[in-house]
Nucleic acid binder design. Sequence first.
DNA 1: CTATGTGAATCGCTTCACAGCA
DNA 2: TGCTGTGAAGCGATTCACATAG
Lengths: 283, 283
Amino acid sequence: MASGRSHRPATRSRGIPEATVARLPLYLRALTALSERSVPTVSSEELAAAAGVNSAKLRKDFSYLGSYGTRGVGYDVEYLVYQISRELGLTQDWPVVIVGIGNLGAALANYGGFASRGFRVAALIDADHALTGRNVAGLPVRHTDELEDIIRDNQVSIGVIATPAGAAQEVCDRLVAAGVTSILNFAPTVLSVPDGVDVRKVDLSIELQILAFHEQRKAGEDLGEAVAAASAGEEKGGLAPRAKTAAAKAAAARTAAAKAVAAAAGKTKRPGPDGDVPAVMPA
Amino acid sequence: MASGRSHRPATRSRGIPEATVARLPLYLRALTALSERSVPTVSSEELAAAAGVNSAKLRKDFSYLGSYGTRGVGYDVEYLVYQISRELGLTQDWPVVIVGIGNLGAALANYGGFASRGFRVAALIDADHALTGRNVAGLPVRHTDELEDIIRDNQVSIGVIATPAGAAQEVCDRLVAAGVTSILNFAPTVLSVPDGVDVRKVDLSIELQILAFHEQRKAGEDLGEAVAAASAGEEKGGLAPRAKTAAAKAAAARTAAAKAVAAAAGKTKRPGPDGDVPAVMPA
DNA sequence: CTATGTGAATCGCTTCACAGCA
DNA sequence: TGCTGTGAAGCGATTCACATAG
């Protein structure tokens, strides 16, 4: 039943809001960069800019961790790096396994960002005997048969699934059964896991689809929208063929460029099944 | 200034909530699976389960698109597939470029999920002359010098950045200057883009860090928390060395297993700089 | 006088519960 | 009767604005 990113829906211990937790790594990265440049302190304003958020949010976020700043001055970079690292659990060493050593799995194995933040790739696992024994990113690929032993021997609690969609749930079940309680899922499937197991999902095609939605908004409305409007009014059952006109629309729209977009957004209507709905949000 | 996922903060045309947009691809995937099994209709309950959300949310989401269901019956699978596809802009063909053909870029180029949903990889681009000319996923890798020409010739409006962090902003600037208005960024950096350009970010190490946070919660509190509590009480400046004890904690905690987690969460306190903070949020 | 830390206002999303339609 | 569609309540996150501390 528990799946997706539902984090202990009822009993949130006392905690840091989930939205804040999701931003801590961002702050940490910005702080690490400052630290490397030997910058001693930052203001919330500067750090917020570096992390890509606004300063009020950043201050509120930090307030959940404690009062780590100095009024009139700012935050001590080194101190904050340590506090955030500790809060995120990065002062510890987390062994992870990557299951599914295809293109993506290999990319993950080679990804430097893991090792640099307390994550250690304990093993690479694949079901393909042609792969097992080979070296990827300096580690031997081991066979799925060994999965349970690997988890136990290395006391792995975090697993990364980079298998095809079809294999993901079974791999997930085995990981969980062997003791893994956090899963990062790259396979395009909804995983179901027991309570107490966290799943985070990274889905490349979903991200692109979200972009396409916004892109369509930018490009479409004032140009080729007759097409969409017409098909929207259709009776059920009449499925329109794929349009193939995006490039033309996009090109035309692109000429208008960035600034025009904001202006256009205001006078724009969405074609809906109900015909024309006036904009609800006044500018 | 505009960066991260801030989508037209003020002027939201009339629209579908962002949270809903982010779920549409999920529904679409579930529906596509049903369609392939020739299932004619689904109830909100069934579809919600397949997509990993609850049915109220799903119905509310669909209500933003229009009234596509039939009371007492459910939703017509084919019809809904089409409507969602159209809403997301997937009835069009979106040429994308991938910049940075390292491990990750290659993985993306090979990723089937792109092609299957209206996205066409128009070109692979890399700065490394050793790579250019080579074939990856059936496409020749082209040099960064050609970037602007490629964007224009193929009328590309969506770009994927899979370069090292250091190169990302410059690539981004060039993409935007050449006409790209949506960017999917895999590089661990905050990109700044002009208004009207959408950026979505996928950060592997951030996802892992979020998992680590929750993992630490599960494992830590009742076991080795003395360590964290002690160091939290320290004066500024005393940076504790990396702990390396995660595995031991995790192992011990894991024995207690999933069910214990929920129970433990209730009686747990966060160690803070101010010592002990009582739970602010009453259960 | 500057920049943090935080109550209070606001916003948007989720959930509830039921009216309305097939 | 069964399931959708949706006002209204609830809840968490963001933003505002200022008291507070250095």
